[in-house]
């Protein structure tokens, strides 16, 4: 009895070691059967309308489970990732994708934020340029500002002075 058990443990251990070494990603991968990880790799890029805003790979509803099984089925049939995505878009609409496809009105989605950012940057840049022209004139005002600030924050200035002394 005891030796039998030992033997059993040894066997399990050996099996585990073999599994662990031969296939570090998943313990259950066979040659052409897609693993859970293969399925999830695609599922995580999709959203199911039943559980909105939760990626498909982690959505616990029954509908999403069926979807993941469908991905598995299609993978078994040898479909590529892109084919599967296209199929899902046909079946359930563009909202299954994590991002709207770059076409038509959706282009606005991608163009507007960078355009606004550039506009903001240009506005800032313009302010900086005009500031350069004033550089000469403002040298005086800097001194004034420094004086104003020191009255307000005398203590901080004391420290700054000390730092400057030390580092000069």
């Amino acid at each position: 009895m005891k030796t039998e058990k030992k033997w059993l443990y040894g066997f399990i251990l050996a099996a585990l070691v073999i599994i662990a070494f031969t296939n570090p990603g998943s313990a259950f991968a066979q040659d052409n059967t897609p693993t859970d990880n293969d399925v999830n790799a695609i599922a995580r890029q999709m959203f199911c309308p039943v559980c909105e805003n939760t990626p498909l790979d982690v959505c616990p509803t029954e509908a999403c489970k069926d979807w993941r099984e469908l991905i598995r089925l299609k993978l078994t049939e040898g479909w590529t990732e892109q084919q599967i995505k296209t199929y899902f878009v046909e079946q359930y609409g563009a909202r299954v994708l994590a991002e709207p496809p770059m076409q038509g009105l959706n282009l606005l989605m991608y163009i507007l934020p960078p355009a606004l950012m550039l506009a903001g940057a240009a506005f800032l840049g313009k302010a900086f340029l005009s500031m350069r022209q004033n550089a000469e004139r403002s040298k005086i005002s800097i001194e004034n500002d420094k004086a104003a600030e020191s009255a307000e924050d005398k203590y901080a200035n004391l420290i700054e002075d000390e730092i400057n002394k030390r580092e000069a």
Binding site: A94, A98, L105, L108, M109, L112
Partner: peptide, 26 residues
Amino acid sequence: IVCFWGVLFPLISELFTGQKVTVGPP
């Protein structure tokens, strides 16, 4: 702006094209 636009865009898309879209983490 990115956030605001990302939240608003699905609304715009649905109103003007009748198509629901997801603006997700990527």
